[in-house]
Lab assay of single mutants.
Amino acid sequence: MDSLVVLVLCLSCLLLLSLWRQSSGRGKLPPGPTPLPVIGNILQIGIKDISKSLTNLSKVYGPVFTLYFGLKPIVVLHGYEAVKEALIDLGEEFSGRGIFPLAERANRGFGIVFSNGKKWKEIRRFSLMTLRNFGMGKRSIEDRVQEEARCLVEELRKTKASPCDPTFILGCAPCNVICSIIFHKRFDYKDQQFLNLMEKLNENIKILSSPWIQICNNFSPIIDYFPGTHNKLLKNVAFMKSYILEKVKEHQESMDMNNPQDFIDCFLMKMEKEKHNQPSEFTIESLENTAVDLFGAGTETTSTTLRYALLLLLKHPEVTAKVQEEIERVIGRNRSPCMQDRSHMPYTDAVVHEVQRYIDLLPTSLPHAVTCDIKFRNYLIPKGTTILISLTSVLHDNKEFPNPEMFDPHHFLDEGGNFKKSKYFMPFSAGKRICVGEALAGMELFLFLTSILQNFNLKSLVDPKNLDTTPVVNGFASVPPFYQLCFIPV
C-alpha cells in the first residue's frame, strides 16, 4: 500500500510540474494548442506526416506557434517570411542545433551535424575549407563525379535492359564520391566492405524516417530501456565508426604531411598542428563522427533524390523527352556531361530543381535551437528552445509555385524558357546551418541524371499514369515507394 501511495504522489508531482512548466512558459512563447500533461501535443500531431499537421496548425495559430513534445516546448516556423527572418536575418541567433537524443547517444555531441557552439563552428569551418581545397564546386571533385558517372552508366548497362530496382546502384554512385573525398578511394560496386557500408546507410535513412524515431526523440528514456529499431540505428553508426577508425589508422601509418590526399589526411594534419593548443576540438573521436556525418549527409540524401527523380521522369515521359532533346543538342553522344553545360541547359536545370522542390526530401529539416534569449515577432523565446522549420511550407508555397503539388519544371523557367532562380528554393535548409555539401549534391544530381539520360531511355513496367509517387515514409525524410524500371541503351 505504501508503495502505491508513493507512486501516486510521484505521478501527481510530475503532472503538477508539467502543468507549471507549460503555464509559466506560455506567456512568453508564441500561441499554440493546449498541451496535455506529460505528453504535450503529441496526440494532435500525425507522426506519419508531421508536415501536414504543421500546415493545419498554422492555419489556426499563424506562421509562428508553439507545440509541446512531452514536456519540451518547440517553436514552429511556417512559411517563407518566418523562416527567412529566423535563419537568414537572425542567422546567428537561430544557428543552434536542437535536442536530438538519439544523435546524442550516437555521437556524444561530436561531428558537424549535431554539434553546437565553438566545437560546431570550428569543425564546420575546417570541413568547408577542406572540401573547397579539394575542389568542391571546382574541377578536381567534378572529375571524381564524372568518373563515377561513367562507372554508374557501365553498371546500368550490365542490367541488359531487364527490369531492376535502382535503389542499390543509385546509392553506390554518391557513396563512392564521398569515399573518394574521405578515403581517396572508390570501391567496386561488388566489394563486400562497400556493400556493408551501403547497407547500413540505407537502413539508417529508413529507420530515421519512421514514426518510432519521432517518439524516441521526444521521450528519450525509451532509447535506453525499450527495444526497437533505434538500437539497430545505433549499432549501424557504431559499425561505421569502427570502419572509419580502421581507415584512420591506415592513414596514420602512411600519411605524407607534405601531400595530403583526402579529408582524413587533412584532419590528422590539423590534429598535429593543434596538439599544443589544448583542449582542441580536433580529436580522433571528432574525426570519426565528422566522417560519419559526411557519409550520412552525402550519400543517402543524394541517392534518395536520384531514385525519386527517375520515378518522376517515368511518370512524366514528356519531361524526359525534353531533357534528352536538350542533352542531344548541347552535349551530344561523344563526350561526358560537365558542369559548364548546365548554363546552356535551362530546361534540365529546371527539372533538377523541380525534383528537389517537389519531393521535399527533408520536410522539417533537422531541429534548430536559439543560442540566446531572443525577441522574435513580439515573442520571447528562451535560450536553448528547439525550433522546428517547415521546409515544406517554403518549397510548396502556392504563391511562389502555382499548383505546388504538381510536378512542373516551369516553376523554374521564365516566359522565355530561361532558368529562373527562386529564393524559396531551400531543399538544403538556409542560413548558417545550410548543408555543407550543397554544391557537391547539386553537381552530382546534374551529372548523374544527364549521364543516365544521355545513355538510356527509361521504360516503366506499368502505365506511367498508374505510377504512385507518394512517399512511403514522410517523417525525417521523404522516401519514394518501391518501383522497377528498364534502362534501355540509346
Rank of each mutant, 00 (worst) to 15 (best):
I123D: 05
H316K: 05
K72E: 11
T348S: 05
E274P: 04
H251K: 09
T229Q: 14
Q192S: 14
F187T: 03
A106F: 13
H344L: 09
N398T: 12
F425M: 11
R186D: 01
I123V: 13
P101K: 05
D468R: 12
D262S: 14
P63S: 13
E122M: 09
N378P: 02
F239I: 09
A309R: 00
F376P: 01
D143S: 13
G109M: 15
L54M: 06
Y61T: 01
N474P: 05
N474V: 07
D188E: 12
C266E: 10
Q214L: 10
D468F: 06
F419C: 09
E300W: 12
L366P: 03
M255F: 08
G91F: 07
T470G: 09
L440S: 01
N56C: 12
E325V: 14
Q356H: 11
V6A: 15
T302E: 03
S343Y: 13
F168P: 07
S365D: 10
N334I: 12
K160S: 08
L458Y: 01
L361I: 12
V370D: 00
P35F: 02
V5S: 15
T290Q: 04
T386S: 08
N231V: 06
F114H: 12
V330I: 11
K383M: 06
M426R: 05
T470M: 07
P33C: 00
G27N: 15
F476V: 13
G98K: 15
H78D: 06
I39R: 01
P221D: 11
F126Q: 03
S162G: 11
G431S: 05
H251C: 07
G416Q: 12
S478I: 13
N403V: 06
K206N: 15
F114W: 11
W120E: 06
R150Q: 11
T450D: 00
E326Y: 01
S242N: 14
K421N: 14
L87S: 06
E85T: 09
V248G: 02
Y424M: 12
M339D: 08
R97H: 08
V237R: 14
I74C: 07
P63C: 10
L156H: 00
S286P: 02
E272L: 11
A86P: 00
L36F: 15
N398L: 08
L16H: 00
L461E: 15
F419W: 03
K138C: 12
D265G: 12
G384R: 04
K247S: 09
C175P: 02
Q324P: 01
F419R: 04
E154G: 07
L102Y: 15
Y483F: 11
K200V: 13
G25P: 15
T167N: 09
S429N: 10
S220C: 10
V64L: 05
S12K: 02
K118M: 08
M257N: 15
L131Y: 05
V436Y: 06
A350V: 00
V351N: 00
I181E: 01
L388S: 04
L311Y: 03
I182F: 13
G79D: 04
S365R: 05
N455F: 03
S51L: 04
L294K: 01
P337D: 01
G117C: 05
T66F: 01
M426S: 06
H184E: 08
Q22G: 14
L67A: 06
C486A: 13
E246A: 10
T66L: 03
Q193T: 15
G135S: 12
L131T: 06
E154V: 06
I169V: 15
N289L: 07
D463M: 07
I374P: 00
T371W: 08
N455P: 00
S95A: 14
D188T: 13
P30Q: 01
E93C: 09
E285R: 10
H344R: 13
E155M: 05
V60K: 15
L29A: 04
D373R: 03
E199D: 14
K273Q: 11
A103L: 12
K247Y: 09
A161I: 03
E444T: 03
I141K: 02
I182S: 02
M136I: 15
I112T: 11
Q214H: 07
Q192L: 11
F226P: 02
K72I: 04
G109E: 10
Q146V: 11
S343Q: 14
A149R: 01
L391K: 10
V83P: 01
V473E: 10
G137F: 15
V352K: 00
K84M: 10
L485K: 00
I215Q: 02
N204H: 05
F419E: 04
V145F: 00
D2C: 15
R139I: 13
H251V: 04
L208A: 11
L11D: 02
K84H: 12
N217F: 07
A321R: 12
E154C: 04
E272C: 13
V83R: 02
E300K: 08
P101V: 06
H251D: 02
G416C: 15
F194H: 04
P427H: 10
P382L: 04
G46R: 08
S478Y: 10
L197T: 03
T302M: 09
E154L: 06
P174A: 10
V462T: 11
T34M: 11
Y68K: 08
D89L: 09
L361V: 11
V6L: 15
E415L: 05
E92C: 07
G70E: 01
S115I: 04
L195G: 09
K200S: 10
K118H: 12
N236R: 02
F194C: 03
G431C: 04
L57P: 01
T392H: 10
N196M: 12
D265T: 07
P363Q: 06
G27S: 12
L87A: 05
F376S: 02
A350H: 00
K247A: 09
V490E: 09
G98N: 08
V64F: 03
V145I: 10
V323G: 00
N217E: 13
V462W: 01
Q484K: 13
L413G: 00
V177T: 06
A439N: 15
D360S: 11
I178V: 12
M339P: 03
V76L: 03
L71T: 14
L234R: 14
M129Q: 15
N218R: 08
M136N: 13
S95D: 06
V6C: 08
L388V: 11
T392A: 13
I264P: 04
N418S: 13
D89V: 12
M406Y: 11
F446P: 00
S422K: 05
E288P: 04
Q214E: 08
